[in-house]
Design a protein around this nucleic acid. Structure first.
Lengths: 230, 230
DNA sequence: TCCTTATCCATACGTTGTACGATTATGTAC
DNA sequence: GTACATAATCGTACAACGTATGGATAAGGA
């Protein structure tokens, strides 16, 4: 009993006990505050004022903690469904924006979440319902609905991955890109070079929000074209 | 000198020496064969028949090894450019397919590569030239070219991430999805439920290749719509 | 020849995930 | 009540990891 006032053995009836949920909540706090690397079993246990090995009673290993976090983030997602009061493409866009926002809430977890969606696809599949509904309203066939939803989801994932990576390094895209391209031998990428010169420094200022909107518009336009082709 | 026939100190002139390239090549081999977790500095050194600390003469730390691997994969990419002999949308699709194929070559590295593109954007920016060229031919304005290219790249990234994650777990999407959706209370996701029932088990068989093609078609159709809107 | 620099090796430290077993309470069966 | 299986925690310990430090040896220019 070298421990500071901490008894060994099973806690008494009234005492608060550890739980999977408590562990995951604490873990999420650590990750949000200090990044994914700060999350170690020892650190997690210390935060909960508990022996590291106690955690293993509720979760089999660290991988399970990470998977649990991904699950938590996904479970917290709620895509709005404005219903039929707006055109289908606006409905789709709103759901897409909400999905992106949800993923942005825990940037330090983005990588974990995005590479773990398979593990949590229970939740995913239900969460995406607004996507399916909007696409159904657009007049797509069942198979097309699936394909279009997947395409949209893939776009959001790729976009979010970029967003999270860049944010993690406080990397400034625009000015960097400009100098880099200017330093290139022009013949290696003539079109790129010309575009960059046409745009100038101002035109290059990259903005995640408008980039996302632009992607959404392209995708909905593409989907609309699928519908029209019948 | 407990070591098995290995001398200490600088190697003699003729002897083969370590190099950044040799290290990265060996690392790539390990990752491809046994996954990213199998890559440790000690294991890497053992493969090269070298003391672990020798590696640090050529690379500052393990993170640099991983970044180097991402760079390697990207440098190996070559997007074909069929030129103006095909329509712009076909040109764009061919480049996109090649990009996806390149990322698929080292599935165990997908996450690393995709979350590290910022670090290697020198290479990226040049590699994407065929994208820009095709979009230029389509008749987009400079700013639109950028936006469309980014959208396409984000889609490919998201798609590749899903492909890599799933492959890593030998997860079978289709049958799993079917049983899962059937188990749902229908009111939680009515559209999804109806779609799944309409399609049946056969119609659900998911195929990455056709999923990718479907995404490409949607995107090119959306881009074409942008052009037409002028 | 001397000296700087390149290259590699040996040892060692702090951290990590977690296997194992001891310790203490709970809840059920008799 | 009294056993007893089970639950929950703690303490110790270990192997593996990344890498800091410093020593050994040779290369190559002064």
């Amino acid at each position: 009993m070298v421990n500071g006032g901490k008894r060994s053995g099973r806690p008494r009836a009234g005492e608060e006990r550890l739980s999977r949920d408590a562990i995951l909540t604490a873990a999420l706090g650590i990750v949000d505050d200090e990044g994914i690397d700060a999350l170690t079993m020892r650190r997690l246990a210390a935060t909960l004022k508990v022996n590291p090995m106690s955690l293993y009673h509720h979760l089999p290993n660290k991988a399970a903690v990470l998977a649990g976090l991904a699950e938590l983030v996904f479970a917290g997602l709620e895509l709005p469904d404005p219903g039929d009061s707006v055109p289908w493409d606006e409905q789709l866009k709103q759901a897409a924006r909400a999905y992106r926002d949800g993923l942005r809430q825990h940037p330090n977890l983005a990588l974990q979440v995005l590479s773990d969606t398979a593990a949590v696809s229970d939740v995913v599949v239900v969460t995406m319902e607004p996507f399916y509904r909007a696409l159904d309203r657009a007049g797509l066939a069942p198979r097309e609905i699936f394909e279009a939803a997947n395409t949209l989801i893939d776009f959001i994932h790729g976009f979010s991955l970029g967003e999270a990576s860049v944010r993690a390094e406080t990397f400034e895209l625009a000015p960097d890109l400009l100098t880099r391209v200017r330093a290139l031998p022009a013949h290696k990428a003539p079109t790129l070079t010309r575009i960059v010169n046409d745009l100038g420094a101002d035109g290059l200022a990259y903005d995640f929000d408008s980039g996302f909107e632009s992607g959404l518009s392209t995708l909905t336009a593409g989907i609309a074209a699928t519908v029209r082709r019948r």
